[in-house]
Design a protein around this nucleic acid. Structure first.
Lengths: 220, 220
DNA sequence: TAGATTGTTAATCGATTAACAATC
DNA sequence: TAGATTGTTAATCGATTAACAATC
């Protein structure tokens, strides 16, 4: 069963808001100390995470786990169900272009392992870097991307180059059969319909934080 | 006029969804080539950014800019209005704790200047790093944070330490009078009511990208 | 059994989109 | 003037929350 056929697909599609809460539940369940009870109720989770208990139950209902009235959910079972729901048990391979500070940070981030994410190769245009490796990941010339990516069957590309080079890199990725681009620049990329772009805009994040601190935001 | 008294405050509070689109409009207006017309309509912006035109007009109406029927908005005027709306013309100062790869990437990110964001000092517990500087930013012992932050009047703290140290750092920041924490770890931080925490969870972002690529998401 | 907790159906709320009047 | 575009008011849509029936 490939990732695209996983549990969630047959059922109704998942709202992004629900999806975004799932890793939070997972982290919460993982950090509970082993001494804590083996059973946990939606009310407890909700209280600890500042969520609405109904929302928690609805979210968890999208996984294959089910709770039992009076007792709640089995902690371990729920944890595994969420991992399966999120496809963390299957591996997604990616390539990365731009081995600067940010690229290096991503290459050395150990948290990706837990969610089945693996950066298999990196590219840069700096001759000093080409041919070396960063951790386990080889750094190659960008010229090799177009040829190598299809052979590796990699479907996800990470762009951590300066903004000026982003569109060129994106074009190259599309040529190479990449269908999901994780874009860390603030450039709006032009890509064909079938390619998904996820923008990771650090400036936007800061803007939201500043607005919340300054009380400009609605709920905050 | 301090940031907290800026335009948006007197009026109705801003929905986060609107706020998040503002930097996108700004980037769009900035990247338009100078040859492009000096006037731009909401319809054009909407088409280029794949937004709904009514949404664009409603968003822009929250700024002090106003368009004219038949002609549209003055590009330069709109650009400045958005910058003011977002408070990019005022400076927000921050301190950063944890000068690893990610911390370094943030310290060297030049895009913060445009949005009035300035990291004035960094902290680490590595004796090798303490006393050195990264770019213009001095790296000091974490022990000095509690004393220094209030003197500098810094209100925003960035946490880029390993997860295990995150809560301790957060506690220290709260003691030092920090009221906004930008948390790059996946730990759920415990803080007093008055402190705003913005979680920047790279794993969640990846999860959303993977879900979109695999067609698990609703709209995608 | 009684009480607690789940899971579902209905109500509320807010954001997006549509319809339209105002205006240049 | 006629036509295009803004800005606002109303309708739709989806997510959150409340009410409640089912069940252990």
């Amino acid at each position: 069963m490939s990732k695209s056929e996983s549990k969630a697909i047959g059922n109704c599609p998942v709202p992004e808001s629900t999806l975004r809460r799932m890793p939070i539940y997972l982290q919460y369940l993982q950090q509970l100390s082993p001494q804590d009870t083996d059973l946990i109720s939606a009310a407890t989770i909700a209280k600890d995470l500042d969520f609405n208990p109904v929302q928690v139950r609805k979210d968890l209902a999208m996984t294959e786990a089910s709770g039992r009235p009076k007792t709640g959910y089995k902690r371990r079972e729920l944890l595994v169900a969420i991992e399966n729901f999120l496809g963390y048990n299957k591996t997604d391979e990616a390539l990365l272009v731009g081995v600067g500070r940010l690229g290096q940070a991503l290459l050395s981030y150990e948290g990706f392992v837990k969610c089945g994410f693996n950066i298999v190769v990196a590219f840069d245009n700096d001759p000093q870097k080409i041919g070396t490796a960063y951790g386990d990941t080889e750094i190659m010339s960008i010229a090799k991307l177009e040829n190598l990516a299809p052979r590796l069957g990699v479907k996800i590309g990470i762009i951590t180059v300066p903004g000026g080079a982003a569109q060129t890199v994106a074009d190259c990725m599309v040529q190479a059969g990449i269908v999901g681009i994780w874009n860390f620049t603030s450039i709006k990329l032009q890509v064909p319909e079938h390619v998904v772009v996820q923008d990771e805009n650090i400036t936007t994040s800061f803007t939201v934080l500043a607005a919340r601190v300054n009380g400009m935001l609605q709920h905050a």
